[in-house]
Every structure is written in C-alpha cells, then in structure tokens.
Design a binder for these strands. Structure first.
Lengths: 140, 140
DNA sequence: GTCATACGTTAGTATGGTACTAACATATTT
DNA sequence: AAATATGTTAGTACCATACTAACGTATGAC
C-alpha cells in the first residue's frame, strides 16, 4: 500500500487525527462530534469529510464516520512525522506546547521517507515528548 | 524590528526569494523578470507583489520592484530556516535535491526561533549543502 | 401519538490564495 | 509611425475554508 501523506490539506490532516482519536473511544465518530472537536460548524466538517471520502481515506455508514485502511495508514504516517519533528524541536530546546503547535502547521507537508531518515539521525526515539509511541505501522 | 516569517503564503515566500536573488544582480527586479522566474503570468505575479506591498515587504518605483528593510529581514529569516532544515535533511540521508524541494514546501511555516534552536542542536552548521552561508542578520 | 431536540444534509454565500485571458496603456526601439 | 516590450486592469475560474438558513429524519419525553 502506498503511504499517502502530502495528499491532504491542513484541515483534512486535522480531521484525520480527530477521527483517529475518536475511533479509539467506545463509539464510532459522528459528524457532530467531529465538528465540535474541530471547532467548526457541521457543514464545514461535512465538506472536509466528503473530500476525505473521495480520497478513500474515510467511509460513512449510517451517520458513522470511519477511517479506511488507507486513512489509517495516513494517520499512522502523520503521527510518526508529527512526533519525530516534535521530538526534534523539544530536544533542541523548544517548549513542548510550542513544539506541538508549530509542528502541526507543517508536519503534513513532510514526506514520511524524510521524517524516517531524520528520526534515525536523532537516535530513533521511541517516545515523543507527550509520551506517545513513535512508530510506523507500514513501511515500503 | 520584528522578524516576520509565518506571515507569508507559499507564493509570497517564493516571490521574496526570487526578488532577493534578482536584487543581487546588476539591475533591480522588474515584474516581467519576476513572473518569468516564478513561471507564472504577469498579472498573477503582480497580484502577489501587491500583497507583499501591503505587508510592507516590497516597494515599487517606476516599474522596479524592491525589497524593503522588512522584506530583507524576512528573506534573511526564510533563507536561514530553509538552510537549517535542508542541512538537517541532507545530513540525515535525504538526497540534496530532494531535500531542497521538500523543505521549500514548509520552511515558511517554521518560526525562526525554533529553526535557530534546531540549528544549534545540529551543531550550528555554517554552510548548507549547496555551499550557501547559514546565518541570520537580525536577532531579537 | 405528538412535540421537541438532536443530527445530518443541502443550498447559498463569502473570503483568500492562486491562476488565467483579453484588453488596454505606455514607453522604447526601429 | 509602427512594432515590441512592459505594466496594468478587468473579468473569470478553481480550491480550500467557512458561515447561515432551511429542511428532513429520527429519537426520546411526555
């Protein structure tokens, strides 16, 4: 499977991550929850979700919004890239909260292959500053 | 003076760098040259230049397009950030040409303060992979 | 069973960034 | 004077982002 970062916009990226977080909870994500979490109105969120659907990253079934395999792979890449860059920033002296905010503005523009190389060169950290695992599910 | 990266769009960034390169030549930059260099039509380039003018980064005098002090400070920041990230990528194993292409997609979104910290943490390199100096004119 | 609330959806509109063509104005060069 | 280059204006277009208003559907309260 192709790892498809770089094919999403900033808000699509944000939506994918919200979706991934919600999907880990008890119930599947619903539009109202997504829009609330993203701080945008339902029609705007729907618009983003429909674009993600066209990109085969999301499926909808009876009001539930679900990540596809492709969507999950993209989330996995995005999280990996985000955490690598965040770790780089924090170990360089950027305060953790700043690092997170700053990195989310550009992480989705970095190829996973390059983030992977950067990760190795900073010692393949296993944890990001928030204590989340740094790992990549699929590799090509 | 405030260093104002993060206040430009991708094309404004590109335009500033083209402007900086042209300004180092014999003659001041002209619209036709800028649009040729950027690979876009004159009206599109003019539109970008007008936005940069509103941001006080550019001035126009009799068809000449000139960077203001603020514009030059922004270019200086942008080049610094670009070269730091490019160096990081290349020393991590990303081929030089790829690194340049990839980094220009997101360098303008990184705060100079963070790039500065990353620079120190990778040993304050003096040269980027293209042999250009890595330095910052103004610091706050 | 009806009413209210929540939710999803559609339509319409708006703004900003990027991009074009066509047309025109102005200046320089031949 | 005509041709060429350059800059400018107007009009249009597309995408991403965002909103409101309105409508349909469903679910739970009473």
């Amino acid at each position: 499977m192709t790892i498809n970062t770089n094919e999403v916009t900033k808000k699509e990226r944000d939506c994918l991550l919200v979706l991934s977080r919600l999907q880990d909870g008890e119930f599947p994500a619903r539009l109202s929850e997504i829009s609330r979490d993203m701080g945008i109105k339902a029609p705007t969120a729907l618009n983003i979700i429909e674009r993600l659907e066209e990109k085969s990253m999301v499926e909808r079934k009876k009001g539930m919004v679900l990540l596809t395999k492709e969507g999950e792979a993209t989330v996995s890449s995005l999280l990996f890239i985000h955490r690598v860059m965040e770790t780089l920033f924090v170990t360089s002296g950027v305060p953790t909260d700043n690092a997170c905010e700053e990195v989310e503005k550009f992480d989705y523009l970095i190829p996973v292959s390059s983030a992977s190389k950067v990760s190795k060169s900073i010692g393949s950290p296993k944890m990001c500053p928030h204590g989340e695992a740094i790992e990549l599910e699929e590799r090509q």
